[in-house]
């Protein structure tokens, strides 16, 4: 099978802090790929470079065969994304947010309306579809973001901590839905999560990033074997250490936070 995402020596620095440090890996077409790592490891920065939102300092990214720094339009046609942090328009209704997305992604009217109806029911927001997003709770916004990411069916779907803050029912539903899309449409799925058991259950391949470097890459079985552990969670802790990462504890994290304040998220 051929690679649909190719990453070669990718590096990104924010001032003197290296968020992503010379990473290389591939994701095969039709794979469900889990990208794991502790807080601040470089997951979101990597995803932002894969999705044309951030220019790398060096290295190459190929998405569906297109260079993410050069052929941005072709790259953008190839993927869909559910962001980690909110990206909805609060002044629009739930329906309008989905409709806006559907039109931007050129989903034709009949199919668009059908999917919007279906997805609004799927995430349990159908009765609230004409309410402004600014009246929604955090969990409702999260569910709406997920629904929006699924309106068009891209070749590659990026999910940056999609299940954060969702109840177990919704999480289980969501993964079933995504697996179905993966099987029926050969959609490649690239996701990050802190729920290691989700990665264990869903992903064909797993990469672990820490301090901006890829420290493990393989199937769940391979990672367990490498660390001589019997669960992926234990393997993960073995690779990354059990020390707790504070978001703004070390000097490095402070630099990152500062970068964030100045917009270099």
């Amino acid at each position: 099978m051929k690679s649909i995402i190719e990453i070669k020596n990718l590096t990104k620095k924010f001032k003197d802090f290296t968020a992503v440090d010379d990473i290389s890996f591939d994701v095969k077409k039709g794979e469900i790929f889990a990208f794991l790592g502790p807080n601040g490891a470089g997951k979101t920065t990597t995803i932002r470079m894969l999705t044309t939102l951030l220019r790398p300092d060096s290295g190459k990214v190929f998405i569906n065969g297109f260079d993410a720094a050069e052929q941005m339009h072709e790259v953008r046609k190839s993927f869909g994304i559910v962001f980690q942090d909110p990206s909805l328009d609060n002044e629009l209704t739930a329906f309008e947010n989905l409709e806006f997305h559907g039109i931007l992604y050129n989903v034709l009217k009949d199919l668009r309306r059908e999917r919007i109806e279906q997805l609004l029911k799927f995430v349990g927001l159908h009765e609230r579809k004409n309410n402004f997003v600014k009246t929604f709770s955090g969990g409702m916004k999260r569910r709406l973001e997920i629904a929006r990411g699924l309106i068009h069916h891209p070749k590659i779907l990026f999910l940056d901590e999609p299940t954060l803050g969702l109840d177990p029912q919704t999480r289980s539903h969501l993964w079933q839905y995504i697996k179905k899309l993966n099987e029926e449409e050969q959609m490649t799925v690239f996701f990050t999560t802190h729920y290691i058991e989700e990665a264990d259950k869903t992903a064909n391949k797993i990469a672990i990033i820490d301090n901006g470097k890829i420290i493990a890459n393989g199937t769940s079985e391979e990672l367990k074997k490498q660390t001589k552990t019997n669960s992926l969670e234990k393997a993960f802790l073995e690779f990354t250490g059990s020390e707790i990462r504070e978001q703004a504890g070390t000097a490095k994290d402070r630099a990152k936070l500062q970068g964030r304040m100045w917009g270099a998220r």
Partner: peptide, 17 residues
């Protein structure tokens, strides 16, 4: 505003010139 509320990302990743 769109940048602060994250909505800018939604338009920037869209496959629209």
């Amino acid at each position: 505003w769109d940048r602060q509320f994250g909505f800018l990302k939604e338009t920037l990743v869209a496959p629209v010139p």
